[in-house]
Design a protein around this nucleic acid. Structure first.
Length: 186
DNA sequence: GTTGCGATAGTCT
DNA sequence: GACTATCGCAACG
């Protein structure tokens, strides 16, 4: 298996980390998947970032040290997962939007009874938290150690990156901050 | 294959 | 009291 990403990987600008996270492997217990879609929420002037509301009970981890998990509840029923970036004291995080399942497929199928195909197991931000068993109790978890980590792939593949505006937001809708892994050209 | 819409509760104003 | 960084199902083609 590849090495766990060190904290220095996360202590950089959210846009750079969002792009570099594609192809890395998100691991939670027995389940894991390759990150194939991310969105950067750089904080600062970006009104679409949750950190635009300032430091609140929900957003405080975004302003903390990098390499931790920002997990939040939305739409009355869904949980989404972010990775905190940028140095402590500054805001920045990355929404993990989709994974390609790698290990623990049987467990994922049990947790995601609604998935009709294996592709549907973790093909959305709230789907992947269900598939990997990520919950609000994982808020603030340190992703550089333990059984909830992000690591380099065992065998890196070539791919290209598509960049588009972010999905499902109502402010700053035109910023190109969504990154999607695409198969390498041949 | 696509589009439209209801569910449901925490967070901030 | 309004607004969600969504999903799944139903209807249609």
């Amino acid at each position: 298996m590849g090495a766990i990403l060190p904290r220095t990987f996360y202590r950089r600008d959210a846009v750079v980390v969002a792009r570099d996270l594609l192809g890395k492997v998100l691991v939670k217990g027995e389940t894991s998947g390759v990150i194939v879609e991310t969105e950067a929420y750089p904080g600062g002037d970006d009104l679409a970032s949750h950190s635009a509301a300032g430091i609140t009970k929900r957003t405080r981890v975004i302003f903390g040290p990098p390499g931790h998990a920002y997990v939040y509840f939305t739409y009355g029923m869904h949980v989404c997962m972010n990775v905190v970036t940028a140095p402590e004291g500054t805001a920045g995080c990355i929404l993990i939007r989709a994974l390609e399942p790698v290990t623990g497929l049987e467990i994922m199928r049990q947790r995601r009874a609604a998935a009709r195909t294996d592709r549907d197991l973790s093909s959305g931000p709230a789907k992947l938290t269900q598939a990997l068993g990520i919950a609000l109790s994982d808020y603030g978890a340190d992703l550089t150690r333990g059984d909830f980590v992000i690591q380099n792939p065992a065998r890196p593949d070539e791919f290209s990156i598509e960049i588009t505006p972010r999905i499902g937001i109502s402010k700053c809708v035109d910023l190109p901050l969504r990154f999607v892994m695409r198969p390498a050209r041949r």
